[in-house]
Design a protein around this nucleic acid. Structure first.
Lengths: 264, 264
DNA sequence: TGGACTTTCTGGACTAGTCCAGCGGCTTGA
DNA sequence: TCAAGCCGCTGGACTAGTCCAGAAAGTCCA
Protein backbone atom coordinates (compact mmCIF):
# COMPACT_ATOMS: atom_id res chain seq x y z
CA UNK A 1 0.00 0.00 0.00
CA UNK A 2 2.91 2.21 0.46
CA UNK A 3 6.47 1.69 -0.44
CA UNK A 4 9.00 4.34 -0.34
CA UNK A 5 11.99 3.56 -2.46
CA UNK A 6 14.33 2.53 0.31
CA UNK A 7 12.59 3.95 3.30
CA UNK A 8 14.44 3.66 6.54
CA UNK A 9 13.81 0.29 7.97
CA UNK A 10 13.44 -1.60 4.78
CA UNK A 11 10.20 -3.50 5.20
CA UNK A 12 7.15 -1.35 5.46
CA UNK A 13 4.19 -3.43 4.74
CA UNK A 14 1.85 -3.29 1.87
CA UNK A 15 -1.18 -2.56 3.97
CA UNK A 16 -1.44 0.14 6.54
CA UNK A 17 -1.32 -2.20 9.49
CA UNK A 18 2.22 -2.98 8.60
CA UNK A 19 3.31 0.54 8.99
CA UNK A 20 1.13 1.29 11.95
CA UNK A 21 2.43 -1.63 13.91
CA UNK A 22 5.90 -0.86 12.65
CA UNK A 23 5.68 1.97 15.12
CA UNK A 24 6.17 4.94 12.88
CA UNK A 25 2.86 5.70 11.25
CA UNK A 26 2.31 6.60 7.67
CA UNK A 27 2.39 10.36 8.22
CA UNK A 28 5.66 10.41 10.11
CA UNK A 29 7.36 8.05 7.75
CA UNK A 30 6.42 9.91 4.56
CA UNK A 31 7.14 13.19 6.29
CA UNK A 32 10.67 12.18 7.15
CA UNK A 33 11.34 11.16 3.57
CA UNK A 34 10.21 14.56 2.35
CA UNK A 35 12.21 16.29 5.07
CA UNK A 36 15.31 14.47 3.91
CA UNK A 37 14.69 15.42 0.32
CA UNK A 38 14.30 19.07 1.20
CA UNK A 39 17.25 19.24 3.53
CA UNK A 40 19.31 17.13 1.18
CA UNK A 41 18.62 19.54 -1.64
CA UNK A 42 16.76 17.08 -3.88
CA UNK A 43 13.98 19.63 -3.88
CA UNK A 44 15.83 22.90 -4.24
CA UNK A 45 15.09 26.15 -2.46
CA UNK A 46 12.29 28.09 -4.08
CA UNK A 47 11.43 25.15 -6.31
CA UNK A 48 7.96 23.68 -6.61
CA UNK A 49 7.30 20.26 -5.15
CA UNK A 50 5.56 17.61 -7.24
CA UNK A 51 1.79 18.03 -7.13
CA UNK A 52 -0.22 16.56 -4.28
CA UNK A 53 -1.79 13.99 -6.58
CA UNK A 54 1.60 12.98 -7.89
CA UNK A 55 2.99 12.54 -4.38
CA UNK A 56 -0.11 10.52 -3.47
CA UNK A 57 0.73 8.13 -6.25
CA UNK A 58 4.37 7.90 -5.30
CA UNK A 59 3.70 7.22 -1.62
CA UNK A 60 0.47 5.35 -2.27
CA UNK A 61 -1.59 7.33 0.14
CA UNK A 62 -4.72 9.48 0.06
CA UNK A 63 -4.83 13.19 -0.59
CA UNK A 64 -6.14 14.00 2.86
CA UNK A 65 -3.19 12.26 4.47
CA UNK A 66 -0.70 13.81 2.12
CA UNK A 67 -2.21 17.23 2.66
CA UNK A 68 -1.83 16.76 6.40
CA UNK A 69 1.85 15.95 5.91
CA UNK A 70 2.42 19.04 3.76
CA UNK A 71 0.75 21.21 6.39
CA UNK A 72 3.07 19.82 9.05
CA UNK A 73 6.08 20.61 6.89
CA UNK A 74 4.62 24.08 6.39
CA UNK A 75 4.27 24.46 10.14
CA UNK A 76 7.92 23.56 10.52
CA UNK A 77 8.75 26.25 8.01
CA UNK A 78 10.30 23.90 5.45
CA UNK A 79 7.77 24.59 2.70
CA UNK A 80 5.04 27.10 1.91
CA UNK A 81 2.16 27.18 -0.52
CA UNK A 82 0.74 29.54 -3.05
CA UNK A 83 -3.01 29.27 -3.63
CA UNK A 84 -3.71 26.79 -6.37
CA UNK A 85 -0.18 27.10 -7.66
CA UNK A 86 1.64 24.55 -5.59
CA UNK A 87 3.97 23.90 -2.69
CA UNK A 88 7.44 25.44 -2.64
CA UNK A 89 10.62 24.97 -0.64
CA UNK A 90 10.97 27.88 1.79
CA UNK A 91 13.86 30.34 1.51
CA UNK A 92 15.88 30.92 4.67
CA UNK A 93 14.14 33.03 7.28
CA UNK A 94 14.36 36.79 7.41
CA UNK A 95 16.15 37.84 10.60
CA UNK A 96 14.25 40.55 12.43
CA UNK A 97 15.07 42.55 15.53
CA UNK A 98 11.92 44.19 16.92
CA UNK A 99 14.00 46.49 19.09
CA UNK A 100 15.54 48.33 16.19
CA UNK A 101 12.96 50.54 14.56
CA UNK A 102 12.51 51.27 10.90
CA UNK A 103 15.22 48.96 9.64
CA UNK A 104 13.24 46.70 7.37
CA UNK A 105 14.69 47.87 4.09
CA UNK A 106 18.22 48.25 5.34
CA UNK A 107 18.15 44.97 7.18
CA UNK A 108 16.79 43.09 4.18
CA UNK A 109 19.49 44.53 1.95
CA UNK A 110 22.16 43.54 4.44
CA UNK A 111 20.79 40.01 4.34
CA UNK A 112 21.15 39.98 0.58
CA UNK A 113 17.44 40.18 -0.17
CA UNK A 114 15.36 42.55 -2.25
CA UNK A 115 12.74 44.23 -0.09
CA UNK A 116 9.62 46.03 -1.26
CA UNK A 117 6.71 47.75 0.44
CA UNK A 118 3.16 48.32 -0.74
CA UNK A 119 0.77 50.71 1.00
CA UNK A 120 -2.67 49.08 1.08
CA UNK A 121 -4.55 52.13 2.29
CA UNK A 122 -4.57 55.02 4.73
CA UNK A 123 -7.66 55.99 6.67
CA UNK A 124 -9.21 57.24 9.86
CA UNK A 125 -10.79 54.36 11.75
CA UNK A 126 -12.44 53.59 15.03
CA UNK A 127 -9.71 51.99 17.11
CA UNK A 128 -10.18 48.21 17.28
CA UNK A 129 -10.33 46.69 20.78
CA UNK A 130 -6.83 45.23 20.66
CA UNK A 131 -5.34 48.63 19.80
CA UNK A 132 -7.33 50.33 22.57
CA UNK A 133 -5.88 47.88 25.05
CA UNK A 134 -2.34 48.44 23.76
CA UNK A 135 -2.51 52.22 23.74
CA UNK A 136 -4.59 52.36 26.91
CA UNK A 137 -7.29 54.54 25.39
CA UNK A 138 -11.09 54.26 25.71
CA UNK A 139 -13.05 52.30 23.10
CA UNK A 140 -14.55 54.13 20.17
CA UNK A 141 -11.76 56.64 19.68
CA UNK A 142 -10.80 57.68 16.13
CA UNK A 143 -7.26 56.90 15.00
CA UNK A 144 -5.23 57.24 11.84
CA UNK A 145 -4.30 53.88 10.35
CA UNK A 146 -1.74 52.97 7.70
CA UNK A 147 -1.83 49.42 6.35
CA UNK A 148 1.16 48.08 4.47
CA UNK A 149 2.48 44.81 3.11
CA UNK A 150 6.21 44.20 2.96
CA UNK A 151 7.84 41.61 0.75
CA UNK A 152 11.20 39.94 0.35
CA UNK A 153 12.19 38.89 -3.14
CA UNK A 154 8.60 39.30 -4.27
CA UNK A 155 7.08 37.16 -1.52
CA UNK A 156 4.82 38.92 0.96
CA UNK A 157 6.02 38.09 4.46
CA UNK A 158 4.70 40.91 6.63
CA UNK A 159 1.40 42.77 7.00
CA UNK A 160 1.54 45.83 9.25
CA UNK A 161 -1.12 48.10 10.68
CA UNK A 162 0.20 51.34 12.05
CA UNK A 163 -1.98 53.41 14.42
CA UNK A 164 -1.55 56.91 15.78
CA UNK A 165 -3.56 59.94 16.79
CA UNK A 166 -4.68 61.84 13.63
CA UNK A 167 -3.44 65.23 14.84
CA UNK A 168 0.12 64.15 15.66
CA UNK A 169 1.47 63.92 12.11
CA UNK A 170 -0.51 66.39 9.94
CA UNK A 171 -0.29 65.84 6.22
CA UNK A 172 1.37 62.46 6.59
CA UNK A 173 -1.13 60.68 4.33
CA UNK A 174 -0.06 62.84 1.39
CA UNK A 175 3.54 61.63 1.56
CA UNK A 176 5.17 58.55 0.11
CA UNK A 177 4.51 55.97 2.81
CA UNK A 178 6.32 53.04 1.26
CA UNK A 179 9.54 54.02 3.04
CA UNK A 180 10.53 53.92 6.69
CA UNK A 181 7.84 55.61 8.77
CA UNK A 182 10.23 56.04 11.66
CA UNK A 183 12.48 58.10 9.41
CA UNK A 184 9.57 60.28 8.32
CA UNK A 185 8.59 60.90 11.91
CA UNK A 186 12.11 61.86 12.84
CA UNK A 187 13.14 63.84 9.78
CA UNK A 188 9.86 65.55 8.93
CA UNK A 189 8.19 65.93 12.30
CA UNK A 190 11.26 66.02 14.49
CA UNK A 191 9.88 63.20 16.58
CA UNK A 192 12.20 61.27 18.86
CA UNK A 193 11.37 57.99 20.54
CA UNK A 194 11.83 56.97 24.12
CA UNK A 195 10.63 53.71 25.64
CA UNK A 196 9.10 50.89 23.61
CA UNK A 197 7.18 47.77 24.58
CA UNK A 198 6.69 44.82 22.30
CA UNK A 199 4.73 41.59 22.49
CA UNK A 200 5.06 38.42 20.45
CA UNK A 201 2.00 36.22 20.16
CA UNK A 202 1.59 33.07 18.07
CA UNK A 203 -1.77 33.39 16.38
CA UNK A 204 -3.63 32.57 13.17
CA UNK A 205 -4.59 34.82 10.29
CA UNK A 206 -7.80 34.83 8.31
CA UNK A 207 -9.83 37.01 6.01
CA UNK A 208 -8.12 39.87 4.23
CA UNK A 209 -4.85 39.54 6.15
CA UNK A 210 -4.52 35.94 5.02
CA UNK A 211 -5.27 37.10 1.49
CA UNK A 212 -2.66 39.83 1.54
CA UNK A 213 -0.02 37.46 2.88
CA UNK A 214 -1.17 34.88 0.36
CA UNK A 215 -1.60 32.22 2.99
CA UNK A 216 -4.73 30.19 3.46
CA UNK A 217 -7.21 31.29 6.07
CA UNK A 218 -6.42 29.83 9.47
CA UNK A 219 -2.67 29.50 8.91
CA UNK A 220 -0.39 30.17 11.85
CA UNK A 221 1.35 33.53 12.01
CA UNK A 222 3.40 35.56 14.43
CA UNK A 223 1.80 38.72 15.72
CA UNK A 224 4.31 41.29 16.93
CA UNK A 225 2.83 44.37 18.55
CA UNK A 226 4.97 47.39 19.36
CA UNK A 227 3.96 50.40 21.42
CA UNK A 228 6.15 53.49 21.13
CA UNK A 229 6.41 56.15 23.78
CA UNK A 230 7.74 59.67 23.49
CA UNK A 231 10.56 60.86 25.70
CA UNK A 232 7.98 62.18 28.17
CA UNK A 233 6.51 58.66 28.45
CA UNK A 234 3.29 59.54 26.63
CA UNK A 235 2.12 56.89 24.14
CA UNK A 236 2.68 57.98 20.54
CA UNK A 237 1.85 55.14 18.18
CA UNK A 238 1.70 51.41 17.80
CA UNK A 239 2.24 48.72 15.17
CA UNK A 240 0.46 45.42 14.69
CA UNK A 241 2.77 43.25 12.62
CA UNK A 242 1.57 39.93 11.23
CA UNK A 243 4.55 37.88 10.06
CA UNK A 244 4.37 34.74 7.99
CA UNK A 245 5.36 32.18 10.57
CA UNK A 246 7.71 30.38 8.21
CA UNK A 247 9.53 33.46 6.98
CA UNK A 248 10.83 35.15 10.11
CA UNK A 249 13.35 34.59 12.87
CA UNK A 250 13.42 37.10 15.68
CA UNK A 251 16.84 37.84 17.11
CA UNK A 252 17.67 40.22 19.91
CA UNK A 253 20.91 41.06 21.61
CA UNK A 254 20.72 42.25 25.21
CA UNK A 255 23.81 44.09 26.34
CA UNK A 256 23.11 43.84 30.05
CA UNK A 257 20.53 41.48 31.37
CA UNK A 258 18.22 42.55 34.14
CA UNK A 259 19.29 41.62 37.66
CA UNK A 260 17.98 38.58 39.41
CA UNK A 261 15.21 39.02 41.94
CA UNK A 262 16.15 38.12 45.47
CA UNK A 263 13.32 35.70 46.14
CA UNK A 264 12.90 33.02 43.52
CA UNK B 1 -18.97 38.74 6.91
CA UNK B 2 -20.00 37.45 10.26
CA UNK B 3 -22.68 34.86 10.31
CA UNK B 4 -23.62 33.74 13.70
CA UNK B 5 -26.73 33.29 15.75
CA UNK B 6 -29.45 32.87 13.17
CA UNK B 7 -27.17 30.71 11.08
CA UNK B 8 -26.67 28.04 13.67
CA UNK B 9 -30.03 28.29 15.31
CA UNK B 10 -31.83 28.35 12.02
CA UNK B 11 -31.53 26.20 9.02
CA UNK B 12 -27.81 25.86 8.53
CA UNK B 13 -28.12 24.09 5.22
CA UNK B 14 -28.46 20.40 5.32
CA UNK B 15 -26.47 20.01 2.17
CA UNK B 16 -23.23 21.74 1.52
CA UNK B 17 -24.41 23.83 -1.45
CA UNK B 18 -26.50 25.96 0.81
CA UNK B 19 -23.59 27.11 2.82
CA UNK B 20 -20.99 27.25 0.06
CA UNK B 21 -22.98 29.51 -2.19
CA UNK B 22 -23.76 31.61 0.84
CA UNK B 23 -20.25 32.86 0.30
CA UNK B 24 -18.67 31.93 3.57
CA UNK B 25 -17.74 28.30 3.38
CA UNK B 26 -18.68 25.72 5.90
CA UNK B 27 -15.42 25.85 7.83
CA UNK B 28 -15.40 29.59 8.38
CA UNK B 29 -19.04 29.73 9.28
CA UNK B 30 -18.91 26.95 11.88
CA UNK B 31 -15.63 28.32 13.15
CA UNK B 32 -17.10 31.72 13.82
CA UNK B 33 -19.98 30.18 15.74
CA UNK B 34 -17.54 28.31 17.96
CA UNK B 35 -15.38 31.41 18.37
CA UNK B 36 -18.38 33.34 19.57
CA UNK B 37 -19.32 30.63 22.01
CA UNK B 38 -15.84 30.56 23.47
CA UNK B 39 -15.40 34.30 23.66
CA UNK B 40 -18.94 34.69 24.90
CA UNK B 41 -18.28 32.27 27.70
CA UNK B 42 -20.84 29.66 26.62
CA UNK B 43 -17.95 27.24 26.75
CA UNK B 44 -16.11 28.26 29.89
CA UNK B 45 -12.38 28.48 30.39
CA UNK B 46 -10.79 25.13 31.11
CA UNK B 47 -14.03 23.35 30.27
CA UNK B 48 -14.26 20.49 27.78
CA UNK B 49 -16.00 21.10 24.48
CA UNK B 50 -18.64 18.65 23.27
CA UNK B 51 -17.06 15.68 21.52
CA UNK B 52 -16.10 15.88 17.85
CA UNK B 53 -18.86 13.45 16.90
CA UNK B 54 -21.41 15.46 18.81
CA UNK B 55 -20.37 18.70 17.13
CA UNK B 56 -20.53 16.92 13.76
CA UNK B 57 -24.14 16.11 14.43
CA UNK B 58 -24.97 19.62 15.56
CA UNK B 59 -23.38 21.31 12.56
CA UNK B 60 -24.23 18.54 10.14
CA UNK B 61 -20.70 18.12 8.88
CA UNK B 62 -18.07 15.41 8.68
CA UNK B 63 -15.42 14.65 11.24
CA UNK B 64 -12.56 15.60 8.93
CA UNK B 65 -14.06 19.05 8.41
CA UNK B 66 -14.81 19.54 12.06
CA UNK B 67 -11.34 18.38 13.01
CA UNK B 68 -9.89 20.96 10.62
CA UNK B 69 -11.96 23.66 12.34
CA UNK B 70 -10.79 22.61 15.79
CA UNK B 71 -7.18 22.69 14.63
CA UNK B 72 -7.63 26.23 13.37
CA UNK B 73 -9.08 27.28 16.71
CA UNK B 74 -6.14 25.56 18.36
CA UNK B 75 -3.76 27.51 16.11
CA UNK B 76 -5.43 30.71 17.21
CA UNK B 77 -4.86 29.67 20.79
CA UNK B 78 -8.54 29.55 21.74
CA UNK B 79 -8.62 25.84 22.52
CA UNK B 80 -6.20 23.01 23.14
CA UNK B 81 -6.48 19.26 23.19
CA UNK B 82 -5.50 16.42 25.44
CA UNK B 83 -4.84 13.10 23.75
CA UNK B 84 -8.02 11.09 23.58
CA UNK B 85 -9.57 13.12 26.35
CA UNK B 86 -11.07 16.00 24.43
CA UNK B 87 -10.79 19.65 23.48
CA UNK B 88 -10.63 22.34 26.15
CA UNK B 89 -10.96 26.10 26.26
CA UNK B 90 -7.49 27.61 26.71
CA UNK B 91 -6.58 29.55 29.85
CA UNK B 92 -5.12 33.02 29.30
CA UNK B 93 -1.55 33.01 28.09
CA UNK B 94 1.45 33.01 30.38
CA UNK B 95 3.36 36.26 29.98
CA UNK B 96 7.06 35.66 29.53
CA UNK B 97 9.99 38.04 29.25
CA UNK B 98 13.02 36.27 27.75
CA UNK B 99 15.30 39.07 28.86
CA UNK B 100 14.78 38.44 32.55
CA UNK B 101 16.53 35.26 33.54
CA UNK B 102 15.36 32.64 35.95
CA UNK B 103 12.03 34.18 36.75
CA UNK B 104 9.67 31.40 35.76
CA UNK B 105 8.45 30.50 39.23
CA UNK B 106 8.27 34.07 40.49
CA UNK B 107 6.62 35.34 37.37
CA UNK B 108 4.02 32.59 37.39
CA UNK B 109 3.16 33.28 40.99
CA UNK B 110 2.80 36.97 40.26
CA UNK B 111 0.37 36.06 37.50
CA UNK B 112 -1.70 34.11 39.97
CA UNK B 113 -0.75 30.67 38.65
CA UNK B 114 0.73 27.61 40.25
CA UNK B 115 4.02 26.70 38.59
CA UNK B 116 5.84 23.39 38.80
CA UNK B 117 9.00 21.98 37.29
CA UNK B 118 9.99 18.40 36.54
CA UNK B 119 13.53 17.35 35.69
CA UNK B 120 13.37 14.80 32.88
CA UNK B 121 17.02 13.81 33.02
CA UNK B 122 20.59 15.05 33.25
CA UNK B 123 23.33 13.68 31.04
CA UNK B 124 26.48 14.26 29.07
CA UNK B 125 25.67 14.34 25.36
CA UNK B 126 27.26 15.06 22.04
CA UNK B 127 26.18 18.60 21.22
CA UNK B 128 23.42 18.59 18.58
CA UNK B 129 24.08 20.68 15.45
CA UNK B 130 21.75 23.49 16.44
CA UNK B 131 23.54 23.90 19.77
CA UNK B 132 26.94 23.87 18.10
CA UNK B 133 25.80 26.69 15.85
CA UNK B 134 24.46 28.69 18.79
CA UNK B 135 27.51 28.26 20.99
CA UNK B 136 29.90 28.52 18.07
CA UNK B 137 31.72 25.31 18.91
CA UNK B 138 32.88 22.48 16.61
CA UNK B 139 30.57 19.51 15.99
CA UNK B 140 30.98 16.44 18.13
CA UNK B 141 31.86 18.16 21.39
CA UNK B 142 30.55 16.73 24.67
CA UNK B 143 28.24 18.94 26.71
CA UNK B 144 26.23 18.64 29.89
CA UNK B 145 22.49 18.72 29.26
CA UNK B 146 19.58 19.23 31.65
CA UNK B 147 16.10 18.60 30.32
CA UNK B 148 13.12 19.96 32.18
CA UNK B 149 9.38 20.42 31.72
CA UNK B 150 7.63 23.36 33.36
CA UNK B 151 3.91 23.49 33.99
CA UNK B 152 1.32 26.05 34.95
CA UNK B 153 -1.63 24.81 36.97
CA UNK B 154 -0.75 21.25 36.06
CA UNK B 155 -0.57 21.83 32.32
CA UNK B 156 2.86 21.41 30.70
CA UNK B 157 3.61 24.52 28.68
CA UNK B 158 7.40 24.56 28.35
CA UNK B 159 10.10 22.03 27.56
CA UNK B 160 13.67 23.26 28.09
CA UNK B 161 17.05 21.84 27.22
CA UNK B 162 19.92 23.47 29.00
CA UNK B 163 23.47 23.02 27.68
CA UNK B 164 26.82 23.96 29.17
CA UNK B 165 30.39 22.77 29.35
CA UNK B 166 30.65 19.83 31.82
CA UNK B 167 33.54 21.32 33.77
CA UNK B 168 31.99 24.71 34.45
CA UNK B 169 29.57 23.68 37.19
CA UNK B 170 31.03 20.63 38.98
CA UNK B 171 28.58 18.62 41.06
CA UNK B 172 25.57 20.40 39.63
CA UNK B 173 23.78 17.19 38.66
CA UNK B 174 23.64 16.14 42.31
CA UNK B 175 21.63 19.16 43.35
CA UNK B 176 17.91 19.82 43.20
CA UNK B 177 17.46 21.08 39.66
CA UNK B 178 13.76 21.79 39.78
CA UNK B 179 14.43 25.35 40.90
CA UNK B 180 15.92 28.33 39.12
CA UNK B 181 19.20 27.31 37.52
CA UNK B 182 20.27 30.92 37.23
CA UNK B 183 20.01 31.22 40.98
CA UNK B 184 22.10 28.10 41.47
CA UNK B 185 24.77 29.44 39.17
CA UNK B 186 24.86 32.71 40.98
CA UNK B 187 24.56 31.56 44.59
CA UNK B 188 26.52 28.32 44.45
CA UNK B 189 29.09 28.99 41.76
CA UNK B 190 29.30 32.76 42.04
CA UNK B 191 28.59 33.10 38.36
CA UNK B 192 27.46 36.45 36.99
CA UNK B 193 25.99 37.02 33.58
CA UNK B 194 26.89 39.62 31.00
CA UNK B 195 25.48 39.79 27.52
CA UNK B 196 22.69 37.56 26.23
CA UNK B 197 21.31 36.82 22.77
CA UNK B 198 17.94 35.28 22.14
CA UNK B 199 16.10 34.05 19.10
CA UNK B 200 12.42 33.31 18.61
CA UNK B 201 11.49 30.86 15.88
CA UNK B 202 8.04 29.52 15.05
CA UNK B 203 8.47 25.79 14.56
CA UNK B 204 6.77 22.44 15.06
CA UNK B 205 7.37 19.80 17.69
CA UNK B 206 7.38 16.07 17.26
CA UNK B 207 8.57 12.91 18.94
CA UNK B 208 9.39 13.01 22.62
CA UNK B 209 9.09 16.79 22.92
CA UNK B 210 5.53 16.62 21.62
CA UNK B 211 4.86 13.83 24.08
CA UNK B 212 6.25 15.74 27.04
CA UNK B 213 4.21 18.81 26.16
CA UNK B 214 1.20 16.56 25.57
CA UNK B 215 0.58 17.99 22.13
CA UNK B 216 0.19 15.93 19.01
CA UNK B 217 3.19 15.43 16.80
CA UNK B 218 3.55 18.20 14.25
CA UNK B 219 1.81 20.88 16.31
CA UNK B 220 3.15 24.41 16.09
CA UNK B 221 5.36 25.65 18.91
CA UNK B 222 7.56 28.59 19.71
CA UNK B 223 11.27 27.85 20.01
CA UNK B 224 13.13 30.40 22.11
CA UNK B 225 16.89 29.98 22.20
CA UNK B 226 19.03 31.94 24.61
CA UNK B 227 22.81 32.17 24.65
CA UNK B 228 24.41 33.52 27.80
CA UNK B 229 27.81 35.14 27.92
CA UNK B 230 30.00 35.78 30.91
CA UNK B 231 31.18 39.26 31.73
CA UNK B 232 34.35 38.62 29.72
CA UNK B 233 32.17 37.86 26.65
CA UNK B 234 32.96 34.14 26.63
CA UNK B 235 29.95 31.91 25.95
CA UNK B 236 28.79 30.11 29.08
CA UNK B 237 25.59 28.22 28.38
CA UNK B 238 22.46 28.14 26.29
CA UNK B 239 18.79 27.18 26.55
CA UNK B 240 16.49 25.70 23.96
CA UNK B 241 12.98 26.45 25.13
CA UNK B 242 9.98 24.90 23.37
CA UNK B 243 6.80 26.71 24.36
CA UNK B 244 3.27 25.55 23.66
CA UNK B 245 2.25 28.06 21.05
CA UNK B 246 -1.14 28.65 22.62
CA UNK B 247 0.10 29.14 26.15
CA UNK B 248 2.66 31.93 25.93
CA UNK B 249 2.83 35.63 25.21
CA UNK B 250 6.26 37.20 25.03
CA UNK B 251 6.48 40.72 26.37
CA UNK B 252 9.57 42.91 26.51
CA UNK B 253 10.09 46.45 27.64
CA UNK B 254 12.95 48.37 26.07
CA UNK B 255 14.01 51.40 28.07
CA UNK B 256 15.92 53.09 25.29
CA UNK B 257 15.55 52.02 21.73
CA UNK B 258 18.54 51.81 19.50
CA UNK B 259 19.28 54.83 17.33
CA UNK B 260 18.18 55.02 13.74
CA UNK B 261 20.71 54.34 11.05
CA UNK B 262 21.48 57.28 8.83
CA UNK B 263 20.88 55.58 5.52
CA UNK B 264 17.51 53.82 5.27
C1' DT C 1 -0.08 40.32 -33.76
C1' DG C 2 -2.98 40.02 -29.98
C1' DG C 3 -6.98 39.22 -27.47
C1' DA C 4 -10.53 35.70 -26.25
C1' DC C 5 -11.53 31.27 -25.50
C1' DT C 6 -10.66 26.33 -23.98
C1' DT C 7 -8.43 22.77 -21.83
C1' DT C 8 -5.53 20.93 -18.29
C1' DC C 9 -3.53 21.15 -14.10
C1' DT C 10 -3.13 22.84 -9.49
C1' DG C 11 -4.79 23.05 -4.65
C1' DG C 12 -9.31 23.89 -1.66
C1' DA C 13 -13.16 22.05 0.43
C1' DC C 14 -15.80 18.78 1.33
C1' DT C 15 -18.39 13.73 2.51
C1' DA C 16 -18.83 9.29 4.59
C1' DG C 17 -17.11 6.02 6.13
C1' DT C 18 -13.24 2.32 8.77
C1' DC C 19 -10.20 0.79 12.25
C1' DC C 20 -7.33 1.69 16.38
C1' DA C 21 -5.47 3.21 21.18
C1' DG C 22 -6.16 5.03 25.36
C1' DC C 23 -9.05 7.27 29.20
C1' DG C 24 -12.48 6.55 32.63
C1' DG C 25 -16.50 5.03 34.70
C1' DC C 26 -18.85 0.80 35.99
C1' DT C 27 -19.21 -3.85 37.32
C1' DT C 28 -17.85 -7.82 39.34
C1' DG C 29 -15.75 -10.98 42.19
C1' DA C 30 -12.31 -12.33 45.76
C1' DT D 1 -13.37 -3.03 50.39
C1' DC D 2 -10.84 -2.76 46.64
C1' DA D 3 -8.46 -4.24 42.80
C1' DA D 4 -9.19 -6.34 37.96
C1' DG D 5 -11.28 -6.24 34.06
C1' DC D 6 -14.75 -4.84 30.86
C1' DC D 7 -16.83 -1.49 27.84
C1' DG D 8 -18.30 2.74 26.01
C1' DC D 9 -16.56 6.97 24.69
C1' DT D 10 -12.88 9.97 23.27
C1' DG D 11 -9.70 11.56 19.70
C1' DG D 12 -6.02 9.67 16.09
C1' DA D 13 -5.17 8.03 11.69
C1' DC D 14 -6.45 6.67 7.81
C1' DT D 15 -9.07 5.60 2.77
C1' DA D 16 -11.41 6.81 -1.39
C1' DG D 17 -13.75 9.32 -3.45
C1' DT D 18 -16.59 14.22 -5.31
C1' DC D 19 -17.01 18.82 -6.83
C1' DC D 20 -15.10 23.53 -7.29
C1' DA D 21 -12.07 27.75 -8.32
C1' DG D 22 -8.25 29.65 -9.99
C1' DA D 23 -3.56 29.52 -12.61
C1' DA D 24 -1.30 28.66 -16.78
C1' DA D 25 -0.59 27.40 -21.17
C1' DG D 26 -2.08 26.46 -25.49
C1' DT D 27 -5.37 27.41 -29.59
C1' DC D 28 -7.76 29.85 -32.71
C1' DC D 29 -9.58 33.47 -35.08
C1' DA D 30 -10.14 38.52 -36.11
Amino acid sequence: MKKLPEQEGGESANTNEGMRKGGMGRVKSIKSVLQDRIRGGIYEMGQRLPSERQLCLEFETSRVTLHEILIQLETEGLIYREERRGWFVSPTRFVYNPQSRGHFTLSATQQGRTPSTVVIDTRIVTAPPRVCALLDIPEGQQLACIRRVRSINGRAILYVEHYFSPDVFPGLFERDLSVSLTELYRDVYGFDYGRMTYQIIPTAVSGDIAGLLRVSSGSPALLVTRVNHARDESVRDCDLEYWRHDAVLIEVDVANSSPLPSDE
